[in-house]
Design a protein around this nucleic acid. Structure first.
Lengths: 418, 418
DNA sequence: CGAATTTAATTTGCCATGCGTAAAAAATAC
DNA sequence: GTATTTTTTACGCATGGCAAATTAAATTCG
């Protein structure tokens, strides 16, 4: 069934595969506007002709839409920068680009032992960033909300802005996040379940605030800025405290039925002596580090979120126990990736997260297990990419989620000139 | 990115999430026509007012679209049958229903040891059916194509039709089927890989022929006629010789990147003594029956596709080896279902296929393993439904795939009256 | 039995959208 | 300075959907 318009205001976002409704001219315009705007964002300074070619819209329509985007101040013209052959005759192309100052958003990665905030402009460029190395694990909601609010406010001030200048905030959170409704169904950093966190933070910040699974956020981040810019289908696996999954399907985040995020850690690897063995018990951060907690200094490092870097050092010092744990984790993850590939057959799988810092023992056993487990018929269809981006990048991904919704929102009507 | 129009003729089908292109009035009309037609199909004889309510299109638009559908002969009016209170005042509603005779399609289920064909009308009612209990396993393409062609032709004749009366044929085939291109990437019933079977059969039958994974076919079948009529998201798992998966996402079949089907049997359950343990090695039909092949009479029954019914008898006679195999299979499938639910969180999981005939030992261990493996946070979100429909139903599902494409196709323009 | 009432479906008028063609504009080459 | 080439805009056409008014068909009431 085709994707179509929503009842207005329900969840704001345009067409993308929400409940099947009806098509009307307004939807048509929204689709094409988004298509043009996204083309401009994605393909840098670009002339109208080229937009027309890429979008397969007529030059007429492109001109109309770009006109309206210019009116709304979402894009800018630039008269230099025609890269084509210098000796080309005729009127030079006017290049269009996204207006960086058309909006500002805050993106955040909320993790158990740190929070990272970025303020970005409309293009997704980072204007300021802020890392709070605070353990918020299992604090009451009010405490976490306080800290998040504080972080957002400070990061906004760092960018020489006021909260009123910020159009939208997106928080990337581990766990089962229901983006559509703004509810946190369950998260390792919250004691409670079913929290309407988006509403809570919207009120506190008096700015529209959305939430998204951290894995989804960095998935969109990679699609916008990172290692999946060239793809419209891909899968991302995040290996952090929580094991997350992001699926990009035809340029859109694939959110399960009801908008739930995926929680890879709950996947079952098999039956052990005492019940099921879940992936999280083999490859979760705490599973790998857990055995080491006896060492006082090390435990402290873990508390502060420095666990993985210490591990790296220990592994290089040939800590056998740790190497074993890393290899077992790598094997488990490798098998899981093979299974994910079996289901989704994406052209690329991106792996991110702190566990990558485990280094060669982990990665090699992961690769080996993957090679072993991938069905022969799918050999070679998926490329494994390891990404060790910093935390900023996660936050930037959350910003991309917020920006995507701005890109989709109507702004103004193309209608007759004012 | 929104779904939009395709380059015309590429794959015929309207909006549904193909490559992202542009929206134009034609697409708008296609979306709304499909929406109206599907509403009429789904909600039986229905008045225009009610269509307007369900689709959220204005009565004006509904009148225009139904007018065009009537012109095209796709729907019929019926003046009786207003079920509402007899004492209702005002002009009576004219009920609309799908014209059963607007088209005819053939649907088929091709399995290793049997082929089942049905001819249906435009509504999906079965006009004739034909079962060929032939083992085609690993025959050369030409032989299989011959048999399929023969089956289609005979079934059409049985329905007192000629092939020219048939608008479309859809073959449901196990394995990795690329519906979009018509290629069989790999299938247990073919020795070869990468066969352009849709093209081959289209020529032989001189009728548009499409192929689809058998699991996808019965998934759509359940959405149209079966146990998922009320849902727009669900997951189906087929337990036959091949283990298949169908995902319905927002009323559409979710086909992996590139339109591949899923092949559950390749999923890895864990590492065994000698390499990986795949689901197919535990729960595939041959895995369960394999150990029994020593018994001559039994082996013969398996060859003829009666394996599972014999198994049932043997299990009732307390064949310990077989009960053990069934229980192991149930456990493996139960774990897998839990993992699928973890990924997709569908409100319902439908299980189909010959392995269900294994009976209580299988089902109970499946249920137990599922209950054990499902993460607590997802407990209760998915309902397990066992469906023991006959082979006809699979073929009918394939017919639904063919019909869906007819429903989407343009027929005529709404345009001004002739 | 005829008129008022009620509900359904169609027709009319309006606005938005996209497309194609043709004219205008802008910069370069000669 | 004029011709040339390319890009951009302006206009008319067609389609789609919607709201309001109109017509249609039945029931109820006087």
């Amino acid at each position: 069934m085709p994707c179509v318009k929503n009842t207005p205001g329900t969840d704001g976002v345009g067409c993308p595969h929400e409940t099947m409704k009806t098509a009307d001219p307004e939807l048509m315009r929204a689709i094409n506007r988004l298509s043009v705007l996204d083309t401009i964002r994605r393909h840098g300074p670009i002339s109208r002709v080229e937009i027309s070619e890429r979008t397969e819209l007529s030059t007429t329509t492109v001109s109309a839409i770009t006109g309206s985007l210019l009116d709304d101040g979402l894009i800018l013209t630039r008269h230099e920068g025609d890269i084509r052959n210098e000796t080309v005759r005729g009127r030079p192309r006017v290049m269009l680009e996204v207006n960086p100052d058309a909006a500002r958003v805050v993106g955040a990665k909320i993790a158990a032992n740190r929070m990272v905030f970025v303020v970005t402009n409309f293009r997704g460029d980072v204007l300021s960033k802020l890392t709070l190395p605070i353990r918020i694990d299992r604090q009451p909601i009010a405490v976490i909300a306080d800290l998040v609010e504080d972080g957002v406010r400070r990061c906004v001030v760092d960018a020489d802005l006021s909260l009123e200048d910020v159009d939208s905030v997106c928080l990337g959170i581990p766990g089962v996040i229901e983006h559509r409704t703004g509810y946190i169904r369950s998260s390792p950093i919250f004691r409670e379940v079913n929290i309407d966190f988006a509403a809570e933070m919207s009120v506190r910040l008096s700015t529209p605030t959305i939430i998204e699974s951290d894995a989804h956020a960095i998935t969109l981040g990679h699609h916008w800025f990172g290692k999946a810019r060239d793809l419209e289908d891909m899968v991302l696996i995040s290996l952090e405290q929580t094991l997350g999954l992001g699926v990009l399907h035809r340029n859109q985040l694939f959110r399960g039925a009801g908008g739930l995020s995926h929680n890879l850690g709950d996947l079952v690897l098999g039956m052990g002596q005492q019940g099921v063995v879940r992936l999280s018990s083999r490859a979760g951060e705490s599973a790998i580090l857990g055995e080491q907690q006896t060492d006082g200094r090390f435990a402290e490092a873990v508390r502060l979120g420095r666990g993985m870097s210490h591990v790296q050092a220990l592994i290089q010092a040939d800590d056998d126990r740790l190497i074993g744990a890393a290899m077992r984790a790598g094997e488990a993850v490798g098998l899981t990736i093979a299974n994910i590939v079996t289901l989704f057959a994406p052209p690329r799988v991106i792996l991110v997260g702190s566990s990558l810092a485990l280094g060669e023992p982990f990665l090699n056993s992961l690769r080996d297990a993957y090679a072993l487990a991938i069905p022969p018929s799918l050999k070679g269809v998926s490329e494994l990419v390891f990404d060790d981006s910093t935390d900023d990048f996660w936050a930037q991904g959350a910003a991309a989620v917020a920006l995507y919704e701005l890109y989709e929102s109507p702004w103004s009507t193309t209608g007759p000139a004012l």
